[in-house]
């Protein structure tokens, strides 16, 4: 099983509902964020092109944060989700420095925190909070190893990209373009 998130940049309007849903669901302390929205404007006026992306931890298949963690606190969980064991985390910051996506932050309680793909919701058969609330339904979540899953179908049908694949991280966040 390999969990992945597919996000349709053509449908996303950048409303940040996913951000608010995550902060509510996961009780993210005020001033921090596990997910965020990036707006990229490309080109020279008046020939512009815009892309809006809802970003979060890429749950990399070859995660630099897991590699750099000196205590084994960062680890691969079921379905390839990268998680932090708070009680093993010493807060050294190696994982924060090692992440090319800047997806991690030090939680005020001392350990390092990040997106978990809402693994507590997945266990109960629900989708992650951000996917659940998206008003334009531009976010999809599922198992990449299952060829019949919605995410697998979308990646067969549509053009997509991942973020900095050249960093060798094998990200599991796909953006339909």
């Amino acid at each position: 099983m390999r969990y992945a998130m597919v996000i349709d940049t053509k449908k996303c309007v950048g409303c940040s509902d996913c951000v608010v849903a995550c902060q509510t669901e996961n009780k993210v302390p005020i001033g921090y964020a596990r997910d965020w929205v990036v707006e990229v404007t490309d080109g020279t006026y008046p020939h512009l092109q815009m892309e809006i992306r809802s970003e979060r931890c890429n749950q990399c298949g070859n995660a630099p944060c897991v590699r750099c963690c000196p205590t084994g606190s960062s680890h691969y969980s079921a379905g390839g989700i990268v998680l932090v064991r708070p009680r093993r985390c010493i807060g050294c910051g190696a994982c924060i420095t090692s992440c090319p996506y800047d997806a991690r932050f030090p939680h005020p309680r001392g350990y390092v925190d990040k997106c978990t793909f809402c693994d507590h919701r997945i266990k109960e058969g629900n989708r992650p909070a951000c996917v659940e609330v998206c008003p334009t339904k531009c976010m999809y979540f599922g198992n990449l190893d299952d060829p019949a899953s919605e995410v697998s179908k979308l990646l067969r049908q549509r053009r997509y990209k991942t973020l900095i694949p050249e960093a060798g991280t094998k990200p599991h966040l796909y953006f339909l373009t």
Partner: peptide, 11 residues
């Protein structure tokens, strides 16, 4: 070609 990135992390 110009690229302008507006981060929406909003904090």
């Amino acid at each position: 070609r110009e690229e302008l990135i507006i981060s929406g992390r909003m904090n």
